[in-house]
Each structure stands twice: as structure tokens, then as C-alpha cells.
């Protein structure tokens, strides 16, 4: 069995939209039979935390210095283009 992956959810405050996105992704991935560890942070904290996670789902722009994959999470707030993003997240989790 492969190691459980860790997703870092980031937004401006680290408690508002990243919470909504975290909950939505957790529910949808459960439907696809996937679980993961979740962390939440402010966008400004991501460079210091990125080394310890597998990838990032963010609703705000993330510093270009971060080398881990960054997936845009705004679709979970707007509902537009959500399926495509879910597929991207699933692909990262199955890597």
C-alpha cells in the first residue's frame, strides 16, 4: 500500500475558503475511494510548509518559489470546472 499523501489547502486567511475547499475535496475523494492527510495554511505560509506536503490546493496565488505542484481550488467555490480539478487531484493522489 502506498503512503498516504498530504494535501496543503491554502487561502488568504488559512481558515475561510481553504476550509470550504478542504471539505469539498475530502468528500469528493472519498467517493472515489481516496483518503489523504489535510493541512491548512495562509498562502504566505506555503513556502515554509511545502517541503512537508505532496501538493497544494490554493484559492489564492502562491509564490513562484514553491516547487511542489499547485492546483487551483477556486472551482470548489464557484462550482465552475470542478470536475476537471477533481480529476487533477485524483491523479496527484494516485501518483
Amino acid at each position: 500500500m502506498s503512503r498516504q499523501k498530504t494535501i496543503l489547502f491554502a487561502c488568504g486567511t488559512g481558515i475561510a475558503t481553504s476550509t470550504a475547499v478542504n471539505v469539498a475535496v475530502t468528500e469528493e475523494m472519498k467517493k472515489r475511494g481516496l483518503t489523504f492527510n489535510a493541512q491548512q495554511a495562509k498562502a504566505t505560509e506555503v513556502p515554509g510548509l511545502a517541503d512537508n506536503v505532496d501538493f497544494i490546493v490554493a484559492t489564492t496565488p502562491i509564490s513562484a518559489s514553491v516547487t511542489k505542484p499547485v492546483i487551483k481550488g477556486l472551482a470548489f467555490l464557484t462550482g465552475i470546472g470542478k470536475d476537471k480539478i477533481l480529476d487533477e487531484i485524483e491523479a496527484q493522489l494516485r501518483k
Binding site: G14, I15, A16, T17, T19, A20, L77, T78
Partner: peptide, 22 residues
């Protein structure tokens, strides 16, 4: 306009707002 101070207790409120937005 959101006044939020505890992410674990305000999931329901956030989801309710998201449901309207979508």
C-alpha cells in the same frame, strides 16, 4: 461578508454560502 474565527466550527456556514454561490 464573513466573520470567522474557528475553521472547525464554521464549516456549515461556509458550505451554506458556497451552496448559494453555486
Amino acid at each position: 461578508l464573513l466573520a470567522i474565527n474557528d475553521k472547525d466550527k464554521q464549516i456549515e456556514a461556509l458550505q451554506a454560502v458556497m451552496a448559494i454561490i453555486q
